[in-house]
């Protein structure tokens, strides 16, 4: 059986005249922290959304944890945690209710305790009762990370997770990523924070105009991405 957590094989995503992804292939082993770098509009979010099963590729095959994206999307969804640009929590719910809703959908065991401990970890313990709509941008981002971690996913897909976070939250997020790596799970990290990417990642890919222009060592990738833009 495959040991790769992610396997992307010549994936294309086409929006009319624009190729957001033009034949990207990559493979990430389990336990990797895979950094996706590249300038604005290079296709990072597009690839992440495809991995998250929200979008379908125009062409190409994808496997996540050995499950085919085309056939077993539901099994993949049970095993991934996703941070997108929006927190995806119901705006009128308190943070606790919003997280509880997602915990129900993922059948998280002992959800109340898990929510408490995650919120405490991300410094939101005292805001659990506040409606999510009242949250500041950084708090929304923290809440989004809580939601993504709720069901203890095997693969974590993070689209610019550091946006809006303060120093304390950055440290927590970094240590969360380290723990996940240590547990043999996989992280896909999309970010423009090249230093952090070089520090956290074990593998890296640089995209440019939907094509893979570099693959390999994160430090080298960071310098490629830095000079390209």
């Amino acid at each position: 059986m495959s040991t790769a957590a992610l396997r992307v094989h010549s994936v294309w995503k086409r929006f009319g005249a624009r190729d957001a992804l033009a034949g990207v292939s990559l493979e990430a082993p389990r336990g990797a922290c895979f950094a996706l770098l590249g300038h604005n509009g290079s296709g990072k979010t597009t690839l992440l959304r495809i991995l998250s099963t929200l979008w379908q590729p125009t062409e190409g095959d994808i496997e996540v944890l050995g499950y085919s994206l085309a056939k077993d999307a539901s099994a993949i969804r049970a095993r991934i945690g996703v941070v997108l640009d929006r927190h995806l929590l119901p705006r009128d719910f308190s943070l606790r209710d919003g997280l509880r809703m997602y915990a129900d959908l993922h059948a998280v065991p002992d959800a109340a305790a898990r929510i408490e401990s995650l919120a405490a970890r991300l410094g939101l313990a005292r805001r659990l009762r506040d409606p999510v709509r009242t949250f500041s941008r950084g708090m929304g981002q923290r809440a989004s990370i809580c939601r993504a971690l709720l069901h203890d996913p095997e693969v974590l897909l993070l689209d610019e997770p550091f946006t809006g976070l303060d120093a304390a939250a950055l440290d927590v997020t970094e240590s969360v990523i380290e723990e996940i790596k240590a547990a043999g799970r996989t992280v896909v990290l999309v970010t423009h924070d090249l230093e952090r990417a070089a520090r956290l990642a074990t593998h890296a890919v640089v995209l440019s105009n939907g094509r893979k222009v570099f693959e390999g060592d994160p430090v080298a990738a960071a310098s490629v991405a830095g000079s390209a833009s």
Binding site: L65, Y67, A78, A107, V108, P109, G184
Partner: peptide, 17 residues
């Protein structure tokens, strides 16, 4: 969940309702 999927020995956590 399908039975055809891989064994996730490291993590028995994938709960789906």
């Amino acid at each position: 969940g399908p039975q055809s999927g891989p064994q996730c020995g490291a993590s028995p956590s994938a709960t789906s309702p």
